[in-house]
Write a protein that binds this DNA or RNA. Sequence first.
DNA 1: ACGGGTACTTACCAAAAGGTGCATACTTGA
DNA 2: TCAAGTATGCACCTTTTGGTAAGTACCCGT
Lengths: 121, 121
Amino acid sequence: MAKENSEIPRFICGLDATLHVISGKWKPLILFFLNKGPTRYGELKRSVRGVSDKMLIQQLKELESDGIVQRTDYGEIPLRVDYSLTPFGASLVRAMEPLCGWGEEHEEDIAVAMDRRKTSR
Amino acid sequence: MAKENSEIPRFICGLDATLHVISGKWKPLILFFLNKGPTRYGELKRSVRGVSDKMLIQQLKELESDGIVQRTDYGEIPLRVDYSLTPFGASLVRAMEPLCGWGEEHEEDIAVAMDRRKTSR
DNA sequence: ACGGGTACTTACCAAAAGGTGCATACTTGA
DNA sequence: TCAAGTATGCACCTTTTGGTAAGTACCCGT
């Protein structure tokens, strides 16, 4: 339903709205790797270096709930579950692509900046 | 200096590198508003709804340290300080633009998804 | 009977991030 | 003398986010 006149907008801007979807230490990386195609849980965990089971599962659940990611359970033993992007999720990942490019292009500068942060503390 | 052969890469991918620069609840929004041109501190605080002085200053300092933002002190009383994007920062904000567009386009879906999250807790 | 594998759960804890409240510096005007 | 304005500092606190460790379900092979 449309917002009432006096209602505070729930997002500051479009960027704010997007950030609500992708906020979480691991979500952008999860999406980045899922962009390569449907992925087993274990394979995804190996790709997203450093993530714990607890957080991987939690953030996958949120992404699934948000309609960004789709979970496919093959009903086998041992368990085999694939995660993949929905079309909605794929559109989000396309919007994230320039960030990947920017990071690749400036990786050295960013590394230097991160070192500076450590030094100044 | 170049990474040694056995060194773990410090970023998982280009996206990871970028995220290190813009991580922080308020940074993306700070950058978004600075994209409109040099901005007084107080004006920036009013634009970024909800931020505290402590965090605004802290995240501006990090962005300045990272070479993303430039601080200009006019040496006047009352204090007048402008913050603006460096060329490096402007290139980052250009890479973020699709996220703004995506969020604007899907704002209703995102609002629904945020409500779903609340409900399921 | 037990261990293997995969995917996932849960209670508790730790760390990080963010916020509050009060303070500061400085000049000017009342 | 005090309050005003802007921008910023800081100690302490709260909240959020993330991690650890141990556990679960299920079938199969040893």
